[in-house]
Amino acid sequence: MKRIGKIVAVAAACAALAGSVAAFSACGSGDVITIAGSTSVQPLMSELADAYYEKTGVTVKVDGGGSGVGISKAQDGTVDLGMASKEVTDKGVTPIQIATDGIALIVSADSALEEVSKQEVYDLYANHTAIQNIVTDAVSRDSSSGTREAFMELIELETIYAGQPELTSQDAVIENVAASDKVIGYCSLEALAGNTTIKGVSYKENATDTAVAPTTENVASGAYTLARPFNIVYNTENGLSDLVNDFIDFIFSDEGAAIIEANGQVVVADSRS
């Protein structure tokens, strides 16, 4: 009798466990679009995905991984769309640019630094030369970051000075910059919005130019030159399914544009034929 009681108890416990698991996971089923890639595009894509789910009930799963992973996963067709925060020239995939993103040079909010030139940034990052005797150190992203790749290309950097922290996340960059008024870093333009601990620095290509403030308007007009494309890529051979095509239509719709703008990026025209 006692044993039967025990068995019943164990069975009940198992059933309860299974039940709760099933109940939890019951929400969210049906059509799914999978997206992976650049962690710079990820926040924007997440907003788009969530809005699309609210509108149509189609689940869009957004994973990180970095631009390289996004492209290679699109190549082997393990995701519907890859995200890349750089120009895409790889074989087997077709890119669609969905937005332009500015890269802001950031210092702590109370820093005296207001504007920098490309040469000054280059000297600090490559040779550890202080900028205007105000900023003496720099932080970078890790070597698989798309933001770092774009930044190094724009500044024409080949290597960075040894012993410079290479951080895995934008949050870590912002925290380090905010903590000291001697440090400069770089991040996506959208991170500036609503953050009072850091500020963006105006940037000029040549020492004789007028420095341009890092704003979306200046990125859109092309005056602020530290910018890179946000691309989505798909497998050229497989093409786009109707499900995915509808989602891309949504990105280029007015609703999508509103989300892109609210997120601090610049809207571009639909390049699909």
Binding site: G64, G65, I71, S72, D142, S143
Partner: peptide
């Protein structure tokens, strides 16, 4: 840990 998640190919 720093690079594996965002790496591909030879890296």
């Amino acid at each position: 840990a720093q690079e594996f998640g965002e790496s591909s190919g030879l890296q």
